[in-house]
């Protein structure tokens, strides 16, 4: 079954994000993901208020990282959310955005071990068990929450590189492929299969999510303009192998990264071109978006996350997804991966 998720970056006032979350639920989105960056509004506060005004949509951080937030705190936060909205909480976890981590002088050290250990900590603690773990990154002794958790919290792991994709399939309840282009998703599937096979999971049973940067509007130019900032961040944080796959010069990506780190937004954003937007976003008029989503679904993705910005006018773009995009995929449900 193809599901749809929507991602918001809580840089807007809380009531706007909540307004759009209500709208997303009304039009049929299945998941609400809110990003976790220290320089935006807090993800758990944003999720808590959104959950209070919604009834059905599943939601969670998309994604948090264990460099800035210790996994015991993540476990505590998602467990608390489960009290507010029982059975609707998921936890997106990733190794963090290099550029943002640099801003607070944090190094993305041993990402695979960090994620593996974090997943164990979050899973054990949200299961209500006491955890004794002497990991290479985290050491916890008899750690346990002082309150009961009613529901299991599925952990979705955000991944882009081969090793993280394999690990995500191996230990995650879901894999969030940080990609928008069919080439990248197709490539990711190889590693996801490997990870699943390693632990005897069936590929067909995996919850595979394409976490896309998405911008829909009546015409391409408007959609492109809205997606530029997020594409700049993705280019800045992408590994060389992915940049080369899309013909993006590594030096240009470094230039964008440096501009972002130093807050030179105009310089960073003006370097983004159509090729970058094509590589790292689903962007354009409805028919273009439908075509690209269709390719991702054919590859075996079973949740499409439309990531902020979503469009030049948030409300209209969300409605456009409902009226123009959803009808094409509600029909396609169940046809893939059979």
């Amino acid at each position: 079954m193809v599901e749809f998720g929507i991602e918001f970056v809580p840089r807007d006032l809380y009531w706007k994000t909540t307004f759009y979350a209500i709208q997303a639920e009304k039009i049929g989105f299945d998941y609400l993901w809110i990003t976790d960056h220290f320089n935006n509004r807090n993800v758990y506060v944003s999720l808590a208020i959104a959950s209070a005004y919604t009834e059905r949509i599943k939601f969670g951080p998309g994604v948090t990282n264990p460099y800035l937030v210790h996994p015991v705190v993540t476990a505590q936060a998602v467990a608390t959310l489960d009290e507010i909205a029982p059975g609707r909480v998921v936890c997106g976890l990733g190794a963090g955005d290099k550029t943002t981590l640099q801003m607070v002088n944090l190094e993305q050290r041993k990402p695979l071990s960090t994620i593996r250990e974090s997943v164990r900590i979050i899973r054990e603690i949200t299961s209500g068990r006491a955890l004794e773990m002497q990991g290479t990154i985290f050491k916890v002794s008899g750690t346990k929450l002082n309150f009961k958790i009613a529901n299991p919290i599925p952990i979705f792991i955000g991944a882009q590189g081969p090793k993280m994709l394999t690990l995500a399939a191996e230990i995650g309840d879901g894999v969030l492929i940080n990609a928008s282009h069919p080439k990248d998703v197709e490539n990711a599937m190889k590693f996801i299969r490997q990870g699943a096979e390693k632990v005897g999971k069936k590929f067909e049973d995996l919850n595979i999510v394409a976490y896309t940067s998405f911008s829909i509007a009546s015409n391409y130019d408007k959609a492109f303009k809205a997606v530029v900032p997020v594409v700049a961040y993705i280019v800045a944080g992408s590994p060389e192998i992915i940049l080369k796959r899309h013909g993006i010069p590594v030096e240009l990506a470094s230039k964008i990264r440096n501009a972002i780190v130093h807050g030179l937004w105009k310089e960073a954003f003006s370097s983004v071109d159509d090729n970058m937007a094509e590589a790292f976003s689903i962007c354009g008029a409805p028919e273009i978006c439908i075509g690209k989503i269709g390719k991702l679904v054919e590859l075996g993705v079973n949740q499409i996350v439309v990531g902020s910005p979503i469009g030049p006018n948030m409300r209209k773009s969300i409605n456009m997804i409902a009226s123009e995009v959803f009808p094409h995929f509600k029909e396609a449900v169940g046809e893939k991966r059979t």
Binding site: L13, W15, K16, F19, I22, Q23, Y53, N313, R315
Partner: peptide, 27 residues
């Protein structure tokens, strides 16, 4: 009116209680 409110550059002037009431009715 929703368009005006969401698109306002003065959105930060929105009283929080009023915002919550609007969200209540929107839901």
């Amino acid at each position: 009116l929703i368009d005006i409110t969401l698109g306002s550059r003065n959105a930060s002037k929105m009283p929080s209680d009023l915002a919550k009431t609007i969200l209540y009715y929107w839901q």
